[in-house]
């Protein structure tokens, strides 16, 4: 049997297990909310995780196009990047996919029926996904600090401007003042 076919056939089971694995990283009370509430506005985190991993999984099985994968992965990681997780915890769910697929293979068919080269290729793709997740996580954290910095700057800009404490280079070139700055 071919691994791609297996992953397509078992899509819903694998996605369900993957989703459960992500939500179990939250406290039990929270995990229950994330699983049961279907309204996307009452449960934005659960919604983003479920739809994010569905889209990532489908894209992952097809072209592994980074540009297409990024927005889907971003939905999940943008949230986890500001939640109470260490960087490794925030993106560890990517690696869980390996174990979930291994377990499914074990349960449904004998693993040796799939050529080991295909399993190695699959796991290598998961590793690539993790590297992409790492990029996104870092971008989110950088953005967080940019937001903080921008807010800080905007808070005081008008005051400094009015207090005549700013002596910025003007946008336009001033007319010649006739003062000769050259050394004589």
């Amino acid at each position: 049997m071919n691994l791609d076919k297996f992953l397509s056939e078992q899509r819903n089971t694998i996605i369900k297990k993957w989703f459960n694995c992500v939500v179990e990283s939250y406290a039990p009370e929270t995990s229950r909310l994330l699983q049961k509430e279907s309204n996307q506005f009452a449960n934005p985190v659960g919604h983003a995780i479920l739809h994010g991993i569905q889209a990532v999984y489908d894209e992952f099985l097809q072209s592994m196009d980074y540009e297409k994968l990024t927005p889907h992965l971003d939905r999940i990681i943008r949230i986890r990047a500001v939640q109470d997780f260490s960087p490794s915890q925030a993106i560890s769910f990517i690696f869980s996919l390996k174990q979930i697929v291994r377990d499914e293979l074990q349960n449904r068919i004998h693993q040796h029926q799939i050529p080991s080269s295909e399993i190695a290729a699959f796991e290598s793709k998961v590793d690539q996904l993790a590297l992409l997740a790492f990029n996104i996580y870092t971008q989110c954290r950088e953005r967080l600090y940019e937001v903080r910095l921008n807010e800080f700057k905007m808070r005081t800009f008008r005051l400094l401007q009015r207090a005549n404490l700013l002596a910025e280079i003007p946008e336009w070139e001033p007319q010649s003042t006739g003062i000769n700055h050259q050394k004589t």
Partner: peptide, 17 residues
């Protein structure tokens, strides 16, 4: 009230219920 709080929804921390 539990799942109505933006802090619980956003943090996932039950003490924010």
């Amino acid at each position: 009230c539990a799942d109505k709080c933006h802090f619980w929804i956003g943090t996932g921390d039950p003490k924010n219920m």
